[in-house]
Design a protein around this nucleic acid. Structure first.
Lengths: 146, 146
DNA sequence: GCGAGATACTATCATTTCAGTAGTTAGTCA
DNA sequence: TGACTAACTACTGAAATGATAGTATCTCGC
């Protein structure tokens, strides 16, 4: 992709440029259900190690993951979610909820671990309280979309 | 990507396999702010026509867009959002909101066209009413992640 | 103290995908 | 007739990706 000249002021374009590829999303998903180590990601995803190295580095660079030493001898590092990375969970949940509604098949459900209840993720406008998608929107700001 | 053997029961993996590439998301964004025609997408995004053809076909195939004749003579078609495509808007809004919080720069805001107010998209569990991300989650269902 | 195993990678190369540009088809308009 | 619009397709070279093998470092059992 052109990466940077596509509507530079658009937050969606920016987000897509940062974590908008398939592997990054799946890595973040795994990170949210507990994976932290290179080989955990590699085995769960069946991703080529070259790709994984690249994606982990990109996510670390972007501030979603942080490299942390979990053993000095032997020196071993793991990748843990930063606050920005954790903040990405609602996006993944809404994304998954959308797929459950619209992509066929028998897909897994999200469960609240504290209550054991199924989660039904929805988007809401914190200002008006209205369900997102119920009203037309537009973008406003520094010279965005064409 | 391997495309199909990555945790077949995981909704996030499924969603990512369907619309989880950069161009698809940007096409959907443009569709949500009014674009319908091939050349509108092409010029807004600066996307190569071959790519655009492929992505539009994939999104149509996946049921997010629908091809519709808007002129018989000459025969011209446009792409309009289906209900499934419209339902994707909250995902895009949350994604954009995340990017506004965590990717630097001066990014555009989302405005509610009826009230003129800025939207602050958040994820909520419709069952408990709790803000998403405030509690640990897990997946449950047909043999999902490893 | 030696070989096997764990962990986290890097190197290499074939294959696939993508970007960029040009060309095609089918029609309108003046 | 010739210019113009819209929606593509064809072609080519560059870049990204996948698969597999190999490396570096350390631990542990014997």
């Amino acid at each position: 992709m052109s990466e940077n000249r596509v509507a530079p002021g658009c937050p969606i374009a920016r987000g897509v440029g940062t974590v908008g590829d398939a592997w990054s999303m799946l890595i973040l998903r795994d990170a949210h259900v507990g994976a932290t180590r290179f080989d955990q990601f590699r085995k769960n995803l069946g991703i080529a190690p070259t790709m994984l190295t690249k994606r982990l580095a990109a996510l670390t660079q972007a501030g979603l993951l942080e490299k942390r030493l979990y053993s000095e001898r032997p020196p071993r590092e793991e990748y843990v979610l930063t606050p920005a990375g954790e903040d990405f969970l609602p996006v993944l949940l809404l994304f998954g909820a959308w797929a459950r509604r619209h992509c066929g098949g028998d897909l897994a459900r999200f469960i609240d671990e504290t209550t054991g209840q199924e989660i039904q993720p929805v988007g809401v406008d914190a200002v008006s309280g209205a369900r997102l998608g119920s009203r037309p929107i537009k973008l406003s700001g520094p010279e965005n979309l064409a």
